[in-house]
Simulated scan of single mutants.
Amino acid sequence: MTRRIKRQYKAFRDDIRDLQTRRPVPGPELEHLDPFLFLNHHGPQVYAPDNLGLPFGPHPHRGFETVTFILRGELAHKDTGGHESIIGPGGVQWMTAGSGLIHSELSPESFKRQGGELEILQLWVNLPSRLKMTAPSYVGLQAADIPQIPLSHGEGSVSLISGEVAGVTGPIKTLTGVTMMTVQLAAGSKVTLKAPAAREVFLYTVKGRLQIGDQQAQSWHLIELDDSDDSVTIEAIEDAVLLFGHADKIREPIVSHGPFVMNTAQEINEAILDYQAGRFNVKLDG
């Protein structure tokens, strides 16, 4: 047995300035997949020399975590917690906004001068009410920091961010036991991944078409699985890249307003007031 496809949600195009952007969630047919709130897929595209780079200047967050996957290109991060890094291709940023953090996500000056390929995923993961006001934190991982678990016969690999696969543990120790990885599959290859039936699975096809059970999963789609089994078998019809993870459902009210995700409208108002009053620490320059 294997989990089967319940429904597919196509990522809709929502460009930000000159940044090609697709978003499968939230969308017209799906608000969230508890606890997974939001996914932006930027690129793939090629920036010319002397470009403006990424448009994500200083902005606040509260009540959840952002997980950013730099598939191609580079990303410069800076936040009011004092964290600063430039993460290259294959790297990941895991930021816990918690009680409140202001950060910027921009292209390094070298990328703006030289240009190059860019493809980035950003996933928002909700926090339960007991952790929404936890202290902010940040971890930046380069590709070399992330375990690469090869599949048999060189047919692909798993880049493990958090959780455990084949006895290997990912470098991120999450607050809520989230398992997260990217998976690279060669055409014709197959992998079976743990997907506990009691947990919510997040599966997004970054590239290529997949076969799951008797259905095909299309590229640039969020794939909602049923809960019929504790694993899922995925076969690549063509060379494929996918974002895969699973987590416990929080099952709490979700009230969101822009960069804030809380449980009540009152908490959203408090977040806005705290931000306006400078209680998210000092503002960043630039």
Score class of each variant (00 low, 15 high):
residue 6 K to D: 12
residue 7 R to S: 13
residue 10 K to T: 13
residue 11 A to V: 15
residue 11 A to N: 02
residue 15 D to T: 04
residue 17 R to K: 09
residue 23 R to C: 01
residue 26 P to A: 05
residue 37 L to G: 04
residue 43 G to P: 15
residue 46 V to A: 06
residue 48 A to N: 11
residue 55 P to C: 10
residue 65 E to G: 02
residue 65 E to C: 10
residue 65 E to Y: 00
residue 71 L to C: 02
residue 72 R to L: 05
residue 75 L to C: 06
residue 76 A to V: 00
residue 80 T to I: 05
residue 80 T to Y: 09
residue 86 I to S: 08
residue 89 P to T: 12
residue 91 G to A: 08
residue 91 G to M: 05
residue 91 G to W: 03
residue 96 T to W: 01
residue 100 G to E: 08
residue 100 G to R: 11
residue 103 H to M: 13
residue 105 E to N: 07
residue 108 P to M: 11
residue 110 S to Y: 09
residue 110 S to A: 14
residue 112 K to Q: 12
residue 112 K to D: 03
residue 122 Q to E: 13
residue 127 L to N: 04
residue 128 P to W: 03
residue 131 L to N: 08
residue 133 M to T: 08
residue 134 T to Q: 14
residue 135 A to K: 14
residue 141 L to P: 05
residue 142 Q to N: 15
residue 142 Q to E: 15
residue 143 A to E: 13
residue 153 H to T: 00
residue 155 E to V: 00
residue 158 V to C: 08
residue 168 V to K: 12
residue 170 G to L: 06
residue 179 T to G: 05
residue 179 T to S: 12
residue 184 Q to C: 01
residue 184 Q to P: 00
residue 186 A to K: 15
residue 187 A to M: 07
residue 188 G to L: 02
residue 192 T to A: 07
residue 195 A to N: 10
residue 197 A to D: 04
residue 198 A to G: 06
residue 199 R to H: 15
residue 210 L to Q: 08
residue 220 W to E: 14
residue 224 E to M: 02
residue 225 L to N: 06
residue 226 D to S: 07
residue 229 D to K: 04
residue 229 D to L: 00
residue 231 S to I: 06
residue 234 I to A: 09
residue 234 I to M: 12
residue 235 E to L: 11
residue 238 E to G: 03
residue 245 G to Q: 13
residue 248 D to G: 05
residue 249 K to L: 05
residue 253 P to T: 10
residue 259 P to M: 10
residue 259 P to W: 08
residue 265 A to V: 14
residue 266 Q to I: 03
residue 267 E to P: 01
residue 267 E to T: 04
residue 274 D to L: 01
residue 277 A to I: 00
residue 278 G to P: 08
residue 282 V to L: 09
